[in-house]
Simulated assay, not measured.
Amino acid sequence: MPDGNDPQQAVAPTGAGGSTDLAMGEAETLERPPGRGPDGGDTGKPRSLWSDAWRELRRNPVFIVSALLILFLVVISLWPQLIVSTNPLSCDLGKSQQGREPGHPFGYDTQGCDVYARTVYGARASVTVGVCATLGVALLGGLIGGLAGFFGGWADALLSRAADIFFGIPVILGGLVFLSVVTSTTVWPVVGFIVLLGWPQIARIARGAVITAKENDYVQAARALGASNRRMLLRHVAPNAVAPVIVVATIALGTYIALEATLSFLGVGLRPPTVSWGIDISNAASQIRNAPHMLLWPAGALSITVLAFIMLGDAVRDALDPKLR
């Protein structure tokens, strides 16, 4: 009969590459509490952070409301023809600053353009800038911060000092200088500028999360068992360090939309013929006494959009941080 104290039988052979798989399995067992079945009993299956977060999000009314608002914004950004049939660039000076009328519930602006059509079409530029800038910032900042935190040493010092340099550039002043020399009327110069100045924030968050994750026991066990840096980074460290990056990026998305509107208001962001809430707010600012409807609708749409993304980010943060539950 096998002896329970025999060390050769205490550990089963794992085969080629099995040692690191064993370390990862132990890490998942340590990190994830047992799941619960429909009757509240222990199912024996480990629960991940993401499954717990999704369960919390589904119960959070703030997440549901913000997600529905964002879904609506995305739909009208892709297919604005679903709720408006007027061309936002078709204007009639004879109707300049007129109020609402049948088929035009928001009235007309100074150029005689339909404010309702411009408000709907303006969502496309704002959502495009926000989503693309957030993806760029998260990828660039997450990559730089993750590598700096994982390898440390001179790479950490070099990348951290580079982030400090970009942190020292005022965003509005940088936008006035950088975008004033750009003649393109597309959204990509604005996206590039936001990514250029926005990645240091994500890089710091990613660096701190990676430094914390790589000190965990399961990472040290994988290192001792001979796992390569690439395997440890992709299989053990990155999955456990990505949550703070997602939270900060989600909240920052609303900030980037507001930043685009601010730069367009100042005349250095998006430019005509691009339809943008910032451009419409800038044009309506001088006519607020004569035609307040010109300012009310694009400003209200911008505020609701920014609020929806910030609410979504707060809900995701509460779901991914067990300390806040």
Rank of each mutant, 00 (worst) to 15 (best):
L263F: 11
Y256D: 08
A284L: 07
A258E: 05
V268H: 12
L234A: 14
P298R: 01
A238E: 02
W199N: 02
A227S: 12
V268C: 10
A299R: 02
R207Y: 02
V306E: 00
R231I: 06
L307V: 11
L225F: 07
L225T: 14
A224D: 06
V268P: 12
V248I: 11
L296K: 05
L196E: 04
A261S: 15
K214D: 03
I202N: 00
F309D: 00
A249H: 11
A238D: 06
V275Y: 15
T255E: 08
R271W: 08
L253A: 15
T255H: 12
I194G: 02
A291K: 05
M294W: 06
I257H: 11
W297G: 06
A206F: 01
S286A: 14
I279V: 15
A241K: 03
R289N: 09
A213F: 08
A241T: 08
F265K: 11
P272Y: 14
G208A: 05
G300E: 04
T255M: 05
F193V: 09
V195E: 00
N283W: 04
L197P: 02
A203P: 02
V306G: 01
S286L: 04
T305K: 01
A291M: 03
I246Y: 08
A241Y: 03
G313T: 00
L234C: 10
S282W: 03
T250E: 07
V245D: 02
A249W: 06
V242M: 07
R204W: 02
A261F: 11
A221G: 05
A224P: 07
A224M: 10
V245G: 02
V245N: 02
L302D: 01
L266F: 08
G278T: 10
P200Q: 10
S286H: 10
M311S: 11
S276T: 14
V195A: 09
A241P: 04
L197E: 03
A261Q: 12
S264K: 14
Y256F: 13
L234E: 13
L225S: 14
Q201I: 05
P273D: 15
V237H: 10
V190Q: 07
L296P: 00
L259G: 12
G226D: 06
W277H: 15
I202F: 00
A284K: 04
A241S: 15
R289Q: 08
V268L: 10
N229R: 13
G198L: 00
W199Q: 02
R271E: 04
V242H: 14
L253H: 12
V237W: 03
F309W: 01
V275T: 15
P272N: 12
P239C: 06
L197C: 13
R231S: 11
N240F: 04
L296E: 03
R230C: 06
R207K: 10
V190G: 05
L259H: 05
A222W: 03
R207E: 03
P298I: 03
V210L: 07
I205W: 01
N216K: 08
V237A: 09
I279Y: 05
